[in-house]
Simulated scan of single mutants.
Amino acid sequence: MTKYARDEFDRVPETSTRQGVHRAVAESGRRRLAPILAVGAAALAVGLVAFLVLPKLGLSTGANTVAVSAEQGASSAAASPAPTASSPASPGPPPSGAPSGTPSASATPSTTPAATAAVDKTQPVAIFNGTTTAGLANRVGGTVSTAGWTLGQLGNWGGVPQKRSVVFYSGAAQKGNAEALGKLLGIQTVVDSAEFQVPLVVVLGPGFQ
């Protein structure tokens, strides 16, 4: 008991909770730190998601591709040798107007004359008169003999009547001889035929002069 009289400061309810200045300061500090802690926790969660989940989803493929491309470019640049001043430049093709050092084979003139088929005048030539002009086979035979040919049979033509004069020859080997005889006698028609026993046969047709 005290010797002083009781006043309003002694009226403390027995059932009320204890309060003090230090408790109010602690509670206000906690209220200020709560938003900061929440933001930090959210940032930490976002960082963990970006580090663990996003690589599995393939979102970092573009960055990895760029990094690999840059690495390959650097390795290829290192592998290719840099040009040096002492390396000789490869000669390019000569200008189109400049003469070539080696003459072309096609530009070389050919000095070899073209080969001509040899005429064999030793082959016997049979001459038949297919016209109504008497003695025509003998006259033409003299012309052929004078030109160096060997004469065969001379006479009148007894086969199918011919519309024009013809030189018959037997086989491709006698074609050159037949053309030579036709040129000599002015006969343009030469025919390959195996019906005769001699290699060259001249049939004088209508209109032969």
Results as ranks from 00 to 15, higher is better:
Met1Gly: 02
Lys3Val: 01
Tyr4Val: 13
Tyr4Gly: 09
Ala5His: 07
Glu8Lys: 13
Phe9Ser: 13
Asp10Arg: 14
Arg11Met: 08
Arg11Val: 10
Val12Ser: 09
Val12His: 10
Thr15Asp: 08
His22Met: 04
Ala24Thr: 05
Val25Ala: 08
Ala26Trp: 00
Gly29Asn: 05
Gly29Lys: 08
Arg31Gly: 03
Arg32Val: 10
Ala34Phe: 00
Ile36Val: 00
Leu37Asn: 01
Gly40Asn: 03
Ala43Asn: 00
Gly47Pro: 06
Gly47Ser: 06
Leu48Val: 12
Phe51Arg: 15
Leu54Val: 06
Leu59Gly: 06
Thr61Ala: 07
Gly62Pro: 05
Gly62Thr: 01
Ala63Phe: 11
Thr65Leu: 07
Thr65Ala: 06
Ala67Gly: 12
Val68Glu: 09
Ser69Thr: 05
Ala70Asp: 15
Ala74Ile: 07
Ser76His: 05
Ala77Arg: 04
Ala78Met: 06
Ala79Ile: 11
Pro81Tyr: 01
Pro83Asn: 01
Pro83Ile: 03
Thr84Met: 10
Ser86Cys: 04
Ser90Trp: 00
Gly92Lys: 02
Pro94Ser: 03
Ser100Ile: 07
Thr102Asp: 00
Pro103Asp: 02
Pro103Thr: 13
Thr108Gln: 12
Pro109Ala: 12
Ser110Ala: 08
Ser110Phe: 08
Thr111Leu: 15
Thr112Cys: 06
Thr112Met: 12
Ala114Gly: 05
Thr116Lys: 12
Asp120Val: 15
Lys121Cys: 11
Thr122Ala: 12
Val125Cys: 03
Ile127Trp: 04
Ile127Leu: 02
Thr131His: 14
Val140Trp: 06
Val144Tyr: 01
Gly148Lys: 02
Gly148Trp: 05
Trp149Ala: 09
Trp149His: 09
Thr150Ala: 14
Gln153Pro: 04
Leu154Ile: 15
Asn156Cys: 02
Asn156Ile: 13
Trp157Val: 13
Gly159Ala: 06
Gly159Trp: 00
Gln162Trp: 09
Val167Pro: 13
Phe168Leu: 15
Tyr169Pro: 03
Ser170His: 15
Ser170Glu: 09
Gly171Thr: 03
Gly171Cys: 01
Ala172Glu: 11
Ala173Asp: 03
Lys175Trp: 00
Ala178Arg: 12
Glu179Asn: 11
Ala180Met: 00
Leu181Val: 04
Gly182Tyr: 08
Gly182Phe: 05
Gly186Leu: 10
Gly186Met: 15
Thr189Cys: 10
Ser193Leu: 03
Phe196Glu: 13
Val198Ser: 03
Val201Asn: 04
Val201His: 06
Val201Thr: 09
Leu204Gly: 05
Leu204Gln: 12
Phe208Glu: 06
Gln209Ser: 13
Gln209Asp: 13
